[in-house]
Write a protein that binds this DNA or RNA. Structure first.
Lengths: 192, 192
DNA sequence: ATCCGCATGTAACCCGTTACATGATTCT
DNA sequence: AGAATCATGTAACGGGTTACATGCGGAT
């Protein structure tokens, strides 16, 4: 999870958490508390960042010049952050990052997060290309796992069954990607 | 992931990683290097623990009296660990830990790991009960998510689509659990 | 005036990562 | 003997967790 020693000057390469915070701030300027509540109210409370993670991360983003506290506004007991130009650029670049086929299964949650944040930011063509490359990566993974599964010759049953679970789950992801491509391709506009 | 301040005396409550190491050692006594290779050769190299994680973790297990280096044996440049009685008991307790419905989706990988390690250690009845409770937890989660999904009224499309992915994936897990229950119930013995 | 919720922040701790260091074995 | 591999270990660093500290604001 950490990405190790870079030392010396300001570390580029944001953490996943930082990227997500930046994305949320790009969507709507927010204070730390706002972000906290947004995480809390998210469909099923997956991951509730602690204060000790949240505020330092915001400061790091600020120090790297990716976000800035809104100046005028009001009380000084509430720092509402908004993205800088550099911040928006970094966020955009993150959204556009290609899907690495090798790590796609492990990064699935991350890619889903990116998918959500892409809406209204990237073009439909870009979104479709993203989904296409995600589907391709999953297809390769599923194919490899299938090959491995039939070749495998375990003495025990549970390992093979567990492998089967991975296969099922990634096949479901793959089908979702295909279906979503179809859905987004079809809809030119939704009725009210 | 960490479980925070316990301070003072020997911290009980092993980390997931420690539990897995303990499980591997219970299955077959191993040195750190052995374990490393076992991780490496695992179906798809998911997670390759670093030396800096592995050896300290083994020492912690040793200090808590859960494993011990085989004494007689041979060279002192290769510590082969075997479980102590306390270690076996802790491993057993871990395998028998009930599936917490609230966290089951997030702990799915963990539960799969436990499922693999259960073979030949727990009775078939216990394994089936485990799978049953896992299936129940997933069913609840899926039902909740379905309810949430139809109730939800987002202005945007992507969040709903992403939610749909979660639904698909967990439905696949649920089906796997049901199917696996059936498979293990049916087989009294496999033909050669 | 006080009490409670908003809001930000900090200290101690834990553990994993990278990268490096260092013995022992084995092969040639 | 020297090289490659086996095998264990350590230091610096990053960042998340819990738990606590602290100020401001509005309600009673």
């Amino acid at each position: 999870m950490g990405q190790g020693k870079v030392s010396g000057m300001a570390r580029q390469q944001l953490t996943v958490f930082e990227h997500i915070l930046l994305g949320l701030i790009c969507a709507t300027p927010s204070s730390g508390y706002d972000l906290k509540r947004r995480f809390a109210s998210t469909p099923i409370g997956v991951y509730q960042p602690s204060s000790g993670a949240l505020y330092p991360a915001l400061r790091r983003l600020e120090q790297q010049g990716l976000v800035q506290a809104q100046p005028g506004q009001s009380a000084r007991q509430r720092r509402v952050y908004e993205p800088t130009e550099a911040g928006r650029a970094a966020h955009l670049a993150w959204l556009r990052m290609p899907v690495a086929a090798a790590t796609a299964p492990g990064d699935l949650g991350l890619h889903l997060m990116r998918f959500v944040m892409m809406e209204h930011v990237l073009s439909r063509a870009e979104v479709l290309a993203f989904l296409r490359s995600l589907a391709d990566a999953l297809a390769v993974f599923v194919a490899d796992l299938e090959k491995y599964t039939i070749a495998a010759d375990f003495p025990d049953r549970h390992p093979l069954l567990a492998l089967g679970h991975g296969l099922d789950v990634h096949r479901a992801s793959l089908r979702w990607a295909e279906r979503t491509i179809a859905a987004l391709s079809a809809a030119d506009d939704a009725p009210a």
